[in-house]
Design a protein around this nucleic acid. Structure first.
Lengths: 201, 201
DNA sequence: ACCAAACATGTAAATATCAACATGTTTATT
DNA sequence: AATAAACATGTTGATATTTACATGTTTGGT
């Protein structure tokens, strides 16, 4: 399916990046939904160059550090748009090793199961808090906007920050969507864990 | 990491299975969180036999159809339990091609984006409905139990069926957990899509 | 008696992914 | 002046995963 190809083309659609920059991008928000290591990115970039979908120019950083700045070509843009507009059917499996362990919960003692559950809850809560903090620092306008009206007693699995204040033509829309979706995912995970914690008490 | 190894051991912990049976299991509920094709399963079973973690006996089906029924060994049980009790740190990325496209939403026209969004919503709703139906047919007791008290006006992203009526010692607990978790995941997805649909109206 | 679907097991080739190996430069701090 | 962290780019080898190739049996329905 070569999704990495399109992930890279999509990043280059907006601006010029080096291989290192692309690696860094995958450590940011989009990394919640797609990422790759540099050892996969560099060969993929070479392949994209060979296919005429991207081009690069070598830029000197400092005295002699060479970095390759990649840009998307017209052909690359066309392939990107064709992919992006194409609806996909859902994957049958969304892999989750923790849930696999939960399916085999009868292999554990109640104490062990509880420990696993609590560890997962702690990790998911930390991740959710991190995402919320990113949201507030990256999109202070929208975060504030909602703190007055609904954010007061939100306990039912959905933060008010997840309510779409952006218009279609806003360069931050994509970023906003992945952040709110990641928050919704983690909130749902936390809620489910909390709802089932009583099994081990 | 070899998660498939433990997925197979976990299945065999409860009962004897053939390779085909294991393939079938991955098409059931556990396939929501882990799965593999038969072309990966058969070599893995051979490897597990070589390692002494599983054994098999050949059984004749009908006149001459040979099938290999696999059982877990004591060593296999030990390795399974060691894995199952071990907490894991969260994966940095949970891949989702649709969300990758949403990050690149500026490559699309509002009409195209809306079409993608609606397609995804339709697919996620269908999947949620399918899971709910499975839940009701597999766990009729608990589905009924909750239809009286809370299931009446559930619109806030969490079905009442997701509220843990089982005790720790119930052989269906693992199955119950993956089903409710999959439903929660899909419900959260549907809610997020619905909340953001207005961007395209 | 025929046929299709399900049962059953494998291999081969291509691709995707990750961990480790390998090397060197630049920038900021002390 | 030293040093650590970040910047920067590659390759290699091991695994994991998917798609296609390959073959045959059994069961249930017409």
């Amino acid at each position: 399916m070569r999704v990495l190809k399109y992930a890279i083309l999509g990043l280059l659609y907006r601006q010029e990046y080096s291989g290192y920059d692309i690696t860094s991008q995958f450590k940011q928000e989009i990394g919640q939904f797609w990422s790759a290591k540099h050892s996969q990115i560099y060969p993929e970039l070479r392949k994209l160059v060979d296919e005429g979908l991207v081009e690069f120019r070598t830029q000197i950083q400092g005295e002699k550090l060479e970095k390759k700045m990649y840009t998307i070509t017209e052909q690359g843009r066309q392939e990107l748009l064709a992919w992006a507009a194409q609806p996909e059917s859902l994957p049958e499996t969304e892999k989750d090793e923790f849930m696999l362990k939960m399916y085999f919960i009868h292999t554990l003692s109640p104490e062990q199961a509880r420990a696993l559950f609590e560890d997962q809850l702690q990790q998911r809560r930390a991740k959710l808090a991190y995402l919320q903090q990113r949201y507030e620092s990256l999109m202070p306008v929208f975060a504030k906007e909602e703190n007055g009206e609904k954010h007061t007693q939100a306990t039912h699995g959905q933060t008010a920050s997840d309510t779409a204040p952006l218009a279609f033509h806003n360069p931050n829309l994509g970023h906003y969507l992945v952040l709110t979706k990641a928050m919704a995912r983690e909130q749902s995970y936390v809620d489910w864990l909390e709802r089932h914690m009583k099994l081990f008490v």
